[in-house]
Design a protein around this nucleic acid. Sequence first.
DNA 1: AACGTAGTACTACACTCATAGTGGTGTCAA
DNA 2: TTGACACCACTATGAGTGTAGTACTACGTT
Lengths: 189, 189
Amino acid sequence: MRKNPERRASLLDAAIEVLAREGMRGLTFRAVDAEAGVPGGTASNYFANRDALLTQIGHRFYERLEPDAALVAHVREGPHDRAKVTALMHELVERVSSFRSGYLALIELRLEATRRPELRRLLTERIRADVDANIDFHLASGLPGDRTTVVQLLLSLNWLILERLTLPDVFPEEQVHDLVTDLVERALP
Amino acid sequence: MRKNPERRASLLDAAIEVLAREGMRGLTFRAVDAEAGVPGGTASNYFANRDALLTQIGHRFYERLEPDAALVAHVREGPHDRAKVTALMHELVERVSSFRSGYLALIELRLEATRRPELRRLLTERIRADVDANIDFHLASGLPGDRTTVVQLLLSLNWLILERLTLPDVFPEEQVHDLVTDLVERALP
DNA sequence: AACGTAGTACTACACTCATAGTGGTGTCAA
DNA sequence: TTGACACCACTATGAGTGTAGTACTACGTT
């Protein structure tokens, strides 16, 4: 088993791309090698088996999701009113949508988690933590809205993003902005 | 190419089960044969290629989703108030969740639609029609709530169901009922 | 400075395994 | 009798994985 952490990370990033582009069926050790531009057999040397590869993809995804300092700073300034929540949600939708491959890969992992207990544990833990962090952040920041507000927004925006990324013509692009605004309006008590 | 419609339907139902249980990777012509309990090679005789199989699975799924007469009848009786909407949404969540394999298979198809234009067209059309039908039905039935109400509920409940089916421990089962109630409350203007 | 060692990159091979497709035969019904 | 289909078996072919063997680089030792 090879150790080189940069190489491992770049293999995992390549795997995310492959997963998003070709799906579970196209995710093979050799395809990861090719995507990462390394000689065939390299991924085999870094991951004992498919299980290891998949769970490490999960870890890697959350590693890459971390940097959110700009958003946090942005929340601190200005008034804490409904308009601010709306702006934040627009930002959220754009930010997540723009990491298309990551998001799609995560959905693939979710489905796979149905069959792989270890992967399921990992994703459950990470996503719970993410939900809780969102709630805590929102409440602590003094923005309007309660727990339910945050949960409702997470649920509806997630599906909206999924819809946009997989079937973009279901909700016409030009309606999405207004839709997000409406969703925020309703989610606030 | 074989014609027998019952056999074709049963192959497609088998394919839905396989898709939900084993994912895209496990969906092979032979696996469909095995699941349907027919001799190997049968699925090959009924579907020219993988593309044909997948789009026909999509069609079949929507064929099976039709029968909703009981629900429609149920809406007609009793008062048309907020409590009724809540009851309907609880029903919706339970009904969809109980067709687990169908729902999971549909998500698999969604992801695959990313790569298959024909499948994408099919799903887009069907899902748009489904959304519109939900809106029209809601408005026509005289229930409280507007267009946005319906869309918001569709979005958030869909993601909630996905969460339940793939990572059941993210939202503890006993909280789901109350959560649905809250979501309805907020979605109504 | 010469040497040895450890860890990793790279190449190539072999082995397994599964899949899709097709041709041929039997069966049933019009 | 004919046509459509169910069933069965065979095969080619491809894919995918893991690993043995070699080459390179860095670092530490004497």
